[in-house]
């Protein structure tokens, strides 16, 4: 009866109430930041004494913020593309390959997700210093691709495992070359997995702070590094404006994901 929604009695009221509290707890900071970004108080007083757009004006007037956002977008896009392509090939090997050590290989490729980022951050920083990639876009993209790879491999292997290989074989029997069969039959069938991989690996790079803090140079900063720097200096409402735009972006991504999933799974 504890798992019958309609037979819980007072417990249901308690659980539902608690769930709403936790939902509010999860939603509160996000909503709060967006409200504050329109507040006129320099000291982030709440409720704000008045409403204003000046923090957004300051944000857009500062080329450092714009540069950081563009840098982040560029690095995240490149990392996501690389991670998805490399991850796609790797996933075929992990799911379809018949070789010893497949599970070990899978474990190895997923390790960057598990290892504390700070360990990888200083390791990559020291290594990239030595080979001259520290503070470069290439260095950033390589490090972020490593971190994004597990987020690409997990959804793609999951989709591939759910795909019946005999359909691909049927295409080959019908006269398609193995490559044609993969391109025209298998890839379209696992597109939801590939799409999730793209979103997750983009976010993995776009939101990444720790490696970025170490890798950044005065001339190459990502958005999280810029925010990090501002946070350490003071709690300027400009950060609230930037954060609100990020929340907006998240919402857009969620909506696009939901719509695309609905469309693709049809």
């Amino acid at each position: 009866m504890l798992l019958d929604y309609n037979r819980l009695g007072w417990l249901r009221v308690a659980l539902a109430g608690f769930t709403m509290l936790v939902a509010a707890f999860l939603l509160l900071p996000v909503v709060f930041i967006v409200l504050l970004s329109f507040g006129s108080s320099r000291w982030l007083a709440f409720p704000p004494p008045g409403w204003t757009l000046k923090w957004y004006q300051q944000l857009f007037a500062d080329p450092a913020w714009i540069d950081a956002a563009l840098t982040s977008a560029k690095i995240a896009a490149m990392s996501a593309i690389l991670a998805v392509v490399i991850g796609l090939f790797a996933s075929f090997a992990l799911v379809r390959g018949e070789f010893r050590g497949r599970q070990v290989l899978r474990g190895l490729l997923l390790t960057p997700m598990v290892l504390p980022v700070v360990v990888f951050a200083i390791a990559a920083y020291a290594f990239f210093l030595r080979i001259g990639l520290a503070g470069t876009t290439v260095g950033f993209v390589i490090a972020h691709t490593v971190l994004a790879l597990p987020f690409a491999i997990i959804p793609i292997t999951a989709a591939l495992e759910g795909f019946d290989k005999s359909i691909e074989d049927a295409a080959i029997v019908c006269g398609a070359s193995p490559l044609q069969a993969r391109l025209r039959i298998t890839l379209p069938s696992i597109r939801i997995g590939i799409f999730s991989a793209a979103i997750f690996s983009f976010l993995a790079s776009w939101d990444e702070v720790v490696v970025a803090i170490f890798m950044a140079s005065p001339t190459l900063q990502t958005l999280p590094v810029k925010i990090w720097g501002s946070l350490r200096a003071d709690l300027s409402p400009v950060v609230a404006a930037a954060s609100s735009l990020l929340v907006g972006l998240t919402l857009c991504l969620m909506i696009v994901t939901a719509l695309l999933r609905r469309k693709l799974s049809r």
Partner: peptide
């Protein structure tokens, strides 16, 4: 071994 070639780029990267 058979079918492992696709993992090579990932293996090199990681």
């Amino acid at each position: 071994p058979a079918g492992s070639g696709g993992a090579l780029p990932a293996l090199v990267l990681v």
